[in-house]
Simulated scan of single mutants.
Amino acid sequence: MTTQTVIITGGATGLGYAIAEAFLHDSAAPTLRERANVVLNGRTFSKLETAAQKLDRPVRVVSPLANRIHLVAGDITDPTFAPKLVDEAVSRFGRVNVLINNAGIFAVKPFTEYSIGELDQYLNYVRGTFALTQEAVKQMRLQGDGGAIINIGTILTFHASQSIPSSAPIMAKAAITAMAKNLAFELAKDRIRINTIAPGIVPTPLHGELTPETLNSLDWQHPLGRVGTPKDIADAVLYLANASWVTGTILPVDGGIAAGGDGLNRS
């Protein structure tokens, strides 16, 4: 079985770190016997090094993670960085099988308080995700054996919350989600699947502006009675990486919010 190579953006902390951990350590990872090689991307190399050290558990005696992790620091909002990231993956591991578009930023504030400059910052992540997805698709087509692209979106695209006003970042997430729906048809003939995960509220460093009080108040508003964990999202990523007959889907991983309408707005 050929070991797969996975690129994860925004991989130093939060969801990206949990996804890397799942591919490197979880027996449900798509390579099963051999698990996966991971190209971990983030803006700061020192943070990537810290993440890699944490990921390097005692299993390294059996399967040295130093041989399975490659760190590539860089900002995906610079579209010229996309070819470099894919080239690094191919140079180190020979191929790209899975792309996780996870990198992003988030800020909670009323609609009228966002500046156009802030909106541009969010839209830069759309441009960067677009460029990186293009480069990954080119490489997957060259390989000729398909691939999987998984975007990390948000349930707030479809179920707004009075407690979390966030129109600018949600606008960017919605654009990436729409791109995936359309690409699923275009890329199906190449056996390249593209799907989006729509997480509910999952506390991570990205959501540092959400107060503990706000997060606690959102616990009970999820039908399953709690906010999510990064592992909840990582488990869904592994599923979509394996799901050879699933493309173009938006998968809510949200504690049941999508099933019930206005759960985030109950009081």
Results as ranks from 00 to 15, higher is better:
Met1Ala: 09
Gln4Leu: 09
Thr5Phe: 01
Val6Tyr: 04
Thr9Gln: 00
Gly11Tyr: 04
Ala12Ser: 02
Gly14Ser: 09
Gly16Trp: 04
Ala18Met: 02
Ile19Trp: 06
Ile19Met: 02
Ala28Tyr: 11
Ala28Phe: 14
Arg33Asn: 15
Glu34Ala: 13
Leu48Cys: 07
Ala52Arg: 15
Gln53Leu: 13
Lys54Ala: 11
Leu55Lys: 10
Arg57Gly: 14
Arg57Ala: 12
Pro58Tyr: 04
Leu65Asn: 12
Leu65Met: 15
Arg68Tyr: 07
Ile69Asp: 05
Leu71Tyr: 11
Val72His: 08
Gly74Lys: 13
Ile76Ser: 01
Ile76Leu: 09
Thr77Met: 10
Thr77Asp: 06
Asp78Val: 12
Pro79His: 02
Val86Trp: 14
Glu88Ala: 03
Arg92Glu: 10
Arg95Ser: 09
Arg95Ile: 07
Val96Trp: 10
Leu99Cys: 03
Ile100Trp: 08
Ile100Ala: 07
Asn102Glu: 10
Ala103His: 03
Gly104Cys: 11
Ala107Lys: 10
Pro110Lys: 00
Thr112Trp: 07
Glu113His: 00
Ser115Asn: 00
Ser115His: 01
Ser115Gln: 00
Glu118Arg: 05
Asp120Leu: 01
Gln121Ser: 05
Tyr122Ile: 07
Asn124Leu: 13
Tyr125Arg: 02
Val126Gly: 09
Gly128Trp: 14
Gly128Ile: 09
Ala131Leu: 09
Ala131Pro: 03
Ala131Trp: 12
Thr133Cys: 12
Gln139Ser: 10
Asp145Ala: 01
Ile150Thr: 04
Asn151His: 15
Gly153Glu: 13
Ile155Gly: 05
Thr157Tyr: 11
Ala160Thr: 12
Ser161Ile: 00
Gln162His: 11
Gln162Thr: 00
Ile164Asp: 06
Ile164Asn: 00
Ile170His: 15
Met171Thr: 10
Ala174Phe: 13
Thr177Val: 14
Thr177Glu: 15
Met179Gln: 15
Met179Trp: 15
Glu186Leu: 09
Leu187Arg: 03
Leu187Asn: 03
Ala188His: 11
Arg191Cys: 01
Ile192Thr: 08
Arg193Leu: 14
Pro199Asn: 14
Gly200His: 07
Thr204Gln: 12
Thr204Arg: 13
Pro205Met: 08
Leu206Ala: 13
Leu210Pro: 06
Leu210Thr: 00
Thr211Pro: 15
Thr214Tyr: 03
Thr214Ser: 02
Leu215Tyr: 14
Ser217Ala: 10
Leu218Lys: 02
Asp219Pro: 00
Asp219Gly: 09
His222Cys: 01
Arg226Phe: 15
Val227Pro: 09
Gly228Arg: 05
Ile233Lys: 03
Ala234Asp: 10
Ala236Met: 08
Val237Pro: 00
Leu240Val: 01
Ala241Cys: 01
Asn242Lys: 07
Ala243Asp: 08
Ala243Phe: 10
Ala243Asn: 03
Trp245Asp: 02
Thr247Phe: 05
Gly248Met: 03
Gly248Lys: 08
Gly248Ile: 02
Gly248Gln: 04
Gly255Gln: 04
Ala258Pro: 11
Ala258Leu: 06
Ala259Met: 09
Ala259Glu: 12
Asp262Thr: 05
Asn265Arg: 07
Ser267Ile: 08
